[in-house]
């Protein structure tokens, strides 16, 4: 049983609890220490961004929360229960195109819904259409995946992840491969959807500005081994514009701190 410790800033119980997580990857030639003693909590409905250079273990951490990987040491809980495997309450939206090319857009969104028991075919269809509408792609529901642009594909991936109604949404650099303009549209979409549906979101990125634009909190990681270095609360009002000056002030500060770590790592 998890201790029901209350976060003094928000009187909301913790949705996710990670305590002293460590993870190693062993191959025949080397051992990589991916995560070292990572501890943090995420409140219900919170939007948390994990930021760090590549190799800092942030994607591994996301996979552990998703239940796709197990930690070597430490505790990871969702709603007070230890995470032992993947489940429809914590869905992942991946960086790469993870849509299934053998299904239509609608078929992709239905995939996760069909894995939930006790939902009738009509209900599934209604939900799928609702979420496609939400991401603005309802009229493309019978399209094939390869006919969509990169931004549309990630919108479908978002609808697919939202449709089974997960309480936690895990996003692994979902906009990394998109052009700047498309990304900015999606920042707007994701903020709108988050404020409407109040999911707990863990968002992994190496883009500091993106993290400041989206997160209530930004957690900074450093690599070799992956460790939490610092946390920043972002109390800016929403919806946020990625090009605003207030936002730039935060991201400049965080970038400065991040560079400091990267340089000391190199020097040391």
């Amino acid at each position: 049983m998890a201790t029901t410790e209350v976060n003094p800033a928000k009187t909301v119980p913790s949705k996710l609890v990670l305590e002293h997580l460590s993870k190693w990857f062993r191959t025949s030639t080397l051992t990589v220490h991916a995560l070292d003693d990572v501890t943090f909590r995420i409140a219900e409905g919170e939007f948390v961004c994990l930021v760090g250079p590549s190799g800092c273990g942030k994607s591994t951490l996301l996979n552990i929360i998703a239940g796709l990987e197990r930690p070597d040491r430490g505790l990871v809980q969702a709603d007070g229960k230890t995470i032992v495997g993947p489940g429809p309450h914590r869905l992942v939206m991946f960086q790469e195109a993870s849509l299934f090319p053998w299904l239509t857009v609608l078929g992709n969104v239905l995939f996760g819904l069909k894995l939930i028991n006790g939902v009738s075919a009509e209900e599934r269809r209604e939900k799928a259409e609702y979420f496609l509408e939400l991401v603005g792609l309802k009229k493309f529901m019978h399209s094939n995946v390869h006919e969509l642009s990169g931004g549309m594909k990630q919108r479908v991936a978002l609808a697919r992840a939202l449709a089974p109604n997960p309480s936690v949404l895990l996003m692994d650099e979902p906009f990394g491969a998109l052009d700047a303009l498309t990304r900015e549209q999606l920042y707007g979409d994701i903020q709108r959807i988050w404020s409407q549906h109040r999911k707990t979101i863990v968002f992994v990125t190496h883009n500091v500005r993106e993290a400041v634009c989206l997160g209530d909190r930004v957690i900074l990681f450093s690599p070799n081994p992956g460790r939490i270095r610092e946390e920043f609360a972002i109390p800016l009002p929403r919806p946020r514009d990625i090009n605003s000056v207030d936002l730039a002030r935060y991201s400049t500060e965080i970038t400065r701190v991040l560079k400091g770590y990267v340089q000391t790592e190199v020097a040391g």
Partner: peptide
């Protein structure tokens, strides 16, 4: 990524084989 995405949505075993 296909099998990982399917697994994260709760697909396992035979379902993953036949559907993914």
């Amino acid at each position: 990524i296909y099998t990982r995405a399917a697994r994260s949505m709760g697909s396992t075993g035979l379902h993953t084989w036949t559907h993914v």
